[in-house]
Deep mutational scan, measured.
Amino acid sequence: SEEELEEFAKEVLRRGITIIVNGIRITEVEIFVKVLREILEKR
């Protein structure tokens, strides 16, 4: 749901943790923004 997305976004921003994806360091915020864009483009 959109509320869950908002909560996830807030949690990500609070933690600001960097994770490893395919050997490249990407912040969770960047991943969230990318996923959010993909979701919005599909609408």
Rank of each mutant, 00 (worst) to 15 (best):
R37C: 04
L36F: 05
E11H: 08
E3Q: 12
E6G: 04
R25V: 10
E38Q: 10
N22M: 11
E41H: 11
L40P: 02
G23K: 04
L36N: 00
T27S: 11
R43S: 07
I26D: 03
L5A: 02
R15G: 05
E7Q: 11
T18W: 14
I26T: 04
L36M: 07
K34S: 07
I17Q: 07
E2S: 11
E38M: 13
V35M: 12
N22Y: 10
I17D: 06
R15C: 10
L36D: 01
F8E: 00
R15M: 06
R15S: 07
E11N: 10
E28G: 06
V33T: 03
E6S: 06
I24H: 08
I19Q: 00
G23V: 08
R37E: 01
V12C: 07
E3I: 10
I39A: 05
V29W: 15
K34M: 13
F32N: 00
K34T: 05
V35H: 05
I39Y: 12
K42R: 12
R25L: 13
I17N: 05
E6M: 15
K34Q: 09
I20D: 02
K34A: 09
G23Y: 14
R25K: 09
I31C: 08
E4K: 12
E41T: 10
V12R: 03
V35Y: 14
R14V: 02
S1M: 13
L5W: 10
L13T: 00
E2W: 15
I31K: 09
R43F: 14
A9G: 02
L5M: 06
E3V: 10
T27V: 11
V29F: 11
V21D: 00
I31Q: 14
G23C: 14
I26G: 02
A9K: 03
L40G: 02
I17F: 14
F32K: 01
E6I: 15
E3M: 11
I19F: 07
N22A: 06
V12T: 06
E30F: 13
G16T: 04
G16H: 12
E30M: 13
E41D: 10
I24N: 04
V35T: 05
G23E: 02
E2I: 15
S1T: 11
R25D: 06
E7N: 11
N22Q: 06
E41P: 04
R37Y: 04
L13C: 01
N22E: 04
V29P: 06
L36K: 01
S1C: 13
E3N: 12
S1Q: 07
L36A: 00
V33R: 06
E38Y: 15
V35S: 02
I31N: 06
R37W: 10
I19M: 03
F8K: 00
L40T: 03
E2K: 12
E6A: 12
L36S: 00
E7H: 08
V12H: 02
A9R: 03
N22G: 07
T18Q: 12
E28Y: 10
I26Q: 01
I24L: 13
G16C: 15
V35E: 01
K10A: 08
E6N: 08
I17M: 12
I24A: 04
G16M: 14
T27L: 09
L13P: 00
F32A: 03
E38D: 10
E28H: 06
R43Y: 14
I17P: 03
E2V: 12
L40F: 12
R14D: 03
R25W: 09
L40R: 04
R43H: 10
K42F: 13
E38K: 12
E11W: 14
I39L: 13
G16E: 04
I17R: 07
F32H: 01
L40S: 02
T18L: 14
L40C: 13
L36V: 03
I17S: 05
